[in-house]
């Protein structure tokens, strides 16, 4: 059967981006010594906490439209010229949530950093996955458009229900959807990448 769900595991993401992590934590300058030391401790503890997984499938644009019923503004903004989309769900696993919770009532600064580290990792994972898509499709002369996620712009958060139905996320990558439409693990991203003959 075509359009089946694929799963990718990653073990070789780029190193932590400290500047990015500090930025996520609200630290907008070069870190002082004490801050640096705490961040180092957090990075050390977080190192083994990740398991990077992505589930994805390709949908014909017709199927996408039927399933998601996007409004016109989303179509105009994101889908013009797009004939297929890649739908994906990426997660860094529950480990970083556990670390954040571990320090929530013990050290708020560490909890803050673990949040930031998780955010940096999941972005890094999405970037890596999308780079690979771009590379793969470039060989076929197909362009990949910028990814977009439920809850941003004209793509409503309720689209998460459809994403989860189509990617079977709990089973394939261990992400579950809460009634509030939040995901667990929290450091997870779902997104759509349009495939088209032309750059936008």
């Amino acid at each position: 059967m075509p359009n089946s769900i694929q799963i990718k595991n990653y073990t070789d993401l780029p190193d932590f981006d400290r500047t990015e992590i500090l930025r996520y934590a609200g630290y907008l300058a070069a870190a002082d010594e004490a801050t640096s030391a705490i961040l180092d401790e957090c990075l050390q503890e977080a190192k083994t906490a990740f398991s990077f997984r992505v589930a994805y499938r390709t949908l014909a644009i017709e199927d996408f439209l039927t399933e998601f019923k996007p409004d016109e503004s989303l179509q105009a903004m994101r889908l013009s010229g797009v004939d297929r989309v890649v739908l994906f769900a990426a997660t860094v696993g529950l480990g970083i949530d556990r670390l954040t919770a571990k320090y929530a009532n013990v050290s708020t600064v560490k909890a803050l950093f673990f949040q930031a580290i998780g955010a940096e990792r999941v972005e890094s994972l999405c970037n890596r996955f999308c780079e690979e898509l771009t590379e793969t499709y470039a060989k076929q002369g197909v362009c990949t458009r910028q990814r977009f996620s439920p809850g941003y712009g004209a793509f409503p958060l309720t689209a998460q229900n459809t994403v989860f139905k189509l990617l079977d996320c709990p089973r394939t990558v261990g992400i579950s959807l809460q009634d509030s439409l939040l995901m667990s693990p929290t450091k997870s991203v779902t997104a759509v990448v349009g495939l088209a003959k032309t750059e936008k």
Binding site: Y27, T108, L112
Partner: peptide, 11 residues
């Protein structure tokens, strides 16, 4: 000062 510094002082 930034949030992490505020929190480190708090701790």
């Amino acid at each position: 000062a930034f949030l992490p510094q505020l929190l480190m002082s708090a701790e």
